[in-house]
C-alpha cells in the first residue's frame, strides 16, 4: 500500500526555537495516525507545515507523488488535503450553511453556487448540523462549532483529513459521538491524522500513534505499546512523576 500523503525530514525553526525536527510521516487511506505530545511539542506546527500555512525550513511534503513542499494552502487543499483548526475558525458573518458552501465551492474543480449549496447541505446532514443551517456560527455550542469545523473540512471532499484537537472542549458525553463520526470517515477510506490531547480517545480510534516531544519524534507504533512506553509518560508528567506512576502501577 502506498501512502496518500508523505512527509520526509520536515523541519521548522523559528529563530532560536526548533519547533519541528526531521519529522517523517505516512498517511494511508483508511488508516488513522494519532499524534500526541505535551504542550509546545510541535503538533500544530506539524499540521501547519503539511498544509502550507507555514513554510518548512527543510524537508519535503508529497501528496500522491506530487511534491507540495512550501505550496500555498489553497494548492494543498486542491490536492485533496483538508484540515481543521485547533481554535475553530468559522466565518462569523456568514450562516452555518454558507460557511460550508464556501468549502464545497473551491475544491479545485469548478462548482456552481447552486451545486455547492446542495453539497453543503448534505455535508451538514452528515455531521448532524442540518437543523442549524441558517444559524450564525456564534450561536453554536462548543461541540457544534467543532462539528462545523469538521463539516467545512469534509465539504472539500478530501482524501486526507488533518484534525487539530477536534475533541478539545467537548463534554464527556459528546466525545463518543464525535469519535464515531471520525471512525466512519476512516471506513469511507479517508487518510486521517488526528492531533489530540485526550489520550484515551486516541487509543480508541488510532491505528498508529506518534509521540512528539520538543519537536522530535519520541516514539511511534501501536497505540497500546506507545502509551505504556516510559519515555512517553516521562514526557507528559516529568521524570519524578513518571517514577511515582510506575511504582503505583506496580
Amino acid at each position: 500500500m502506498t501512502a496518500v500523503m508523505q512527509a520526509r525530514g520536515l523541519s521548522k525553526r523559528f529563530g532560536g526555537l526548533q519547533a519541528v525536527k526531521a519529522l517523517d510521516l505516512d498517511l494511508y487511506a483508511g488508516r488513522l495516525l494519532g499524534v500526541i505530545g505535551p504542550n509546545g511539542a510541535g503538533k500544530s506546527t506539524a499540521i501547519n507545515l503539511l498544509t502550507g500555512h507555514i513554510r518548512p525550513t527543510s524537508g519535503r511534503v508529497v501528496v500522491d507523488g506530487a511534491d507540495l513542499t512550501g505550496a500555498k494552502p489553497w494548492r494543498v487543499a486542491h490536492a485533496g488535503v483538508a484540515r481543521t483548526f485547533q481554535i475553530v475558525k468559522p466565518f462569523r458573518g456568514m450562516t452555518v450553511l454558507d460557511n460550508v458552501t464556501v468549502a464545497a465551492m473551491f475544491t479545485g474543480q469548478r462548482h456552481t453556487v447552486h451545486a455547492s449549496r446542495q453539497a453543503a447541505m448534505e455535508t451538514l446532514d452528515r455531521v448532524g448540523l442540518a437543523g442549524a443551517a441558517r444559524l450564525s456560527p456564534t450561536e453554536l455550542s462548543v461541540a457544534d462549532a467543532r462539528r462545523l469545523e469538521l463539516a467545512k473540512a469534509l465539504a472539500l471532499r478530501p482524501r486526507v483529513l488533518l484534525l487539530d484537537e477536534v475533541l478539545a472542549g467537548l463534554r464527556p458525553g459528546e466525545i463518543d459521538p464525535a469519535l464515531a463520526l471520525i471512525d466512519s470517515l476512516r471506513r469511507d477510506g479517508l487518510a486521517l491524522m488526528m492531533v489530540e490531547h485526550v489520550i484515551h480517545a486516541i487509543t480508541a480510534v488510532a491505528d498508529e500513534v506518534l509521540v512528539l516531544h520538543h519537536g522530535e519524534v519520541l516514539t511511534r507504533g501501536e497505540p497500546a505499546t506507545v502509551l505504556s512506553d516510559e519515555r512517553v509518560i516521562e514526557a507528559y508528567l516529568g521524570s519524578r512523576f513518571a517514577k511515582r506512576a510506575k511504582e503505583e502501577l506496580r
Binding site: 498544509t51 489553497w74 487543499a77 486542491h78 475558525k89 466565518f91 456568514m94
Partner: peptide, 22 residues
Amino acid sequence: RAGYALRAVNQDEEAAAAMGIN
C-alpha cells in the same frame, strides 16, 4: 463564487486559504 471567496477572505484569511481559496 467570487462573492463567497471575498467574504471568506474578509472573515478569516487563514481559514479561507485552507478551504481552497486562492
